[in-house]
Design a protein around this nucleic acid. Structure first.
Lengths: 240, 240
DNA sequence: GATTCTATCTCGCTG
DNA sequence: CAGCGAGGTAGAATC
């Protein structure tokens, strides 16, 4: 991987390095004292301070401070980056349409400007997702309940797609909502919406059960389940 | 802002720079070819590729590729970072408990190692949030409906806290759920939970209305509102 | 620490 | 393109 760094570049040298770097498909990192303004879905201003600005070749911009996982300001992938010297200061501008959003980072001083030729052929292999939980349940439906027979996944209802749709031992319809982690009231609402939608579209006689499958539930979620006549079955996303 | 960069440091020099940097409270950026493993709430592996590793003094770790807003791997603030040379390679390890999570970044090569003395006294001033929408509605309740009188915010119900609670012209109870942007079915479910909870806890005679206040709604959300007998009033989070 | 909910959520998928 | 739901969501407020 190629990497270059300029220390205390002039605003013009910084501008050129930013433009050349983005042109070459590099990731560019600008470190220095700056002010930031954002206008789009919301709007924000950020007074002077030391930060890192990461500009990616896919149009992402990230302004990071010394704290937190999240950037203090950013632009999503797909934006157009530009750099210029305005009033003797490096100004990086990033914008997109739909929705219209603009980010301006104005540097009082640039302490360092780095370029990185970042190429990454590898793909992240992630385990323990909801997809893994679904696979587990389909492989071994008895995890939900003895006699449970899955009939479809992502079955459409007027309220959205049901994770796993099937029938129980007695022939009742079963709607399963999967969650990879401990669930709160929102998941109960989701399951409830699916069950109600199916009940509206079915014969009076048909019994439709709703089962939330997750590692655990909060107290309030459990209360909501009880109120709605829904069930909970504890299952981990991956076997222990 | 102080910034230093080492080009193609030896693993030992890189390790020392990482440890010294973190010790000094700097943000450390390691650029190079690496592999990443994560184990915690889920687990993941990432094969060799060029990436940037940002280590923050608050215990945050971010692994960024050339694409995307999100880091491909990370650790949240509060983790303990460590660096060592293992089998001739720089290995950065970051871990925390509750939940137990570990991240390992093993560098085949380190192209550049930078340290940044990042100090940021400024606070982000953000506008257009749900808090702004709430302020707007409380300042001018007629935005919801002529005669609407807010009586409480964050009023507790068995199903959670209601954004704005009040009464209408006719003395009916009104539950308002605020959303800063266009809403889908989830917000309807949320409002519905609050309304149902209040109905259960109130006299038969009391009429309880649920009003979703947001810039707009999706079609499915509108259908759900109709089914539940809930209402929608369009309001922007900030005046146009 | 656990729970609940917001977020410029982001991301991926589907129509 | 919009809508819908997952996410190692993170972050904040509250209990």
């Amino acid at each position: 991987m190629d990497a270059t760094a300029l220390s205390d570049p002039t605003p013009a040298a910084a501008r050129d390095a930013v433009l050349d770097g983005l042109d070459a498909g590099d990731v560019v990192c600008v470190a220095g004292r700056c002010r930031v303004t954002y206008e789009g879905r919301a709007s924000s201003t950020l007074g002077p301070g030391d930060r890192l600005l990461l500009l990616k070749p896919d149009g992402t911009a990230l302004v990071h401070t010394a704290e937190g996982h999240q950037p203090v300001n950013w632009q999503p992938p797909g934006c157009d980056h530009d750099a210029a010297v305005v009033d003797g200061e490096l100004v990086v501008h990033s914008s997109r349409s739909t929705p219209a959003e603009e980010l301006d980072v104005r540097f009082e001083t640039v302490a360092q400007l780095s370029r990185y030729a970042v190429t990454d052929p590898a793909e992240l292999a992630l385990e323990g997702t909801e997809a893994d939980l679904k696979r587990r349940v389909l492989d071994e439906p008895a995890l939900v309940e003895r006699g449970f027979e899955p009939r479809a996944t992502e079955r459409e209802t007027p309220a959205g797609a049901v994770d796993v749709y099937g029938v129980d031992e007695d022939g009742n319809t079963v709607v399963v909502e999967l969650k990879r982690r401990r669930v709160g009231p929102d998941a109960v609402g989701q399951l409830s919406r699916y069950v109600e939608a199916l009940r509206r579209d079915s014969h009076e006689a048909t019994r439709i059960r709703g089962i939330l499958v997750a590692p655990s539930v909060t107290d309030r979620a459990r209360e909501l389940l009880a109120e709605k006549g829904l069930e909970f079955v504890p299952v981990e996303p991956v076997a222990e």
